[in-house]
Design a protein around this nucleic acid. Sequence first.
DNA 1: TGATATATATAAGAATATGATATATAATTA
DNA 2: TAATTATATATCATATTCTTATATATATCA
Lengths: 116, 116
Amino acid sequence: MSEIQQVRKGSTSLLILSVLLEGPSHGYAIMRKLEERSNGYFKMTAALLYPTLHQMEQEHLIESVWENAVGQRRKKIYTITPKGKEHLTKGNTEWKRFFDQLFNVMDYSAEAKKVQ
Amino acid sequence: MSEIQQVRKGSTSLLILSVLLEGPSHGYAIMRKLEERSNGYFKMTAALLYPTLHQMEQEHLIESVWENAVGQRRKKIYTITPKGKEHLTKGNTEWKRFFDQLFNVMDYSAEAKKVQ
DNA sequence: TGATATATATAAGAATATGATATATAATTA
DNA sequence: TAATTATATATCATATTCTTATATATATCA
């Protein structure tokens, strides 16, 4: 597996919650919005999306209702819960801390190398 | 698993390479340096460190020699290879891109929410 | 002598991601 | 009209990475 694919692990639920913060949406639309907003960087696949959505629903981070409109494929509409909003805020903070520490260590080493 | 533990996935090899960029070191010392430089944030465990080191050696990112000094426990000294240095540079860039895109999506959503 | 720090290592299991496959409808194009 | 593409949800087998627990062994300090 490439480095960047490993990196992406664990970000899925946070990205989904980010999209749902704007308003209710269904699986396929979430996938498309993520790709669109990152200019194709986040290429979410169905095999990752749907199991993640199911798990997030079990954890009460999101809720769903089926929409059965005539002349359209049926869709499962997901909404972010208050617990989901908390999770997103907390996750955002934790990611920022993690990146700070990661680049702290990497920059420290790069600086030490220059001095040699 | 907590969000932050998921986040950490895939960063291990990059952190190890960062430490080795400064100079050769052995497993236990790498573990301690990482904890020290991140003020305790990165708590690397032996069970994660040693298998990762073995794998990285197989991928030729690092090389090792046994050191058998008298009056000391024997140590396996690891050195970063040219391939490892490339890997670190590339990984650093990829992490930065990932970070940019992640917060791009998250901030976009937070802004859209404010406007509602 | 016992506790702690140093030092390397593996096994079992959990969590997350990928590639492949399945099913089905709506809209578009040839 | 037929074929293709886009929409829409879902699972399975497999791979990868991480955690908890366990094992072994030496040096140092109280």
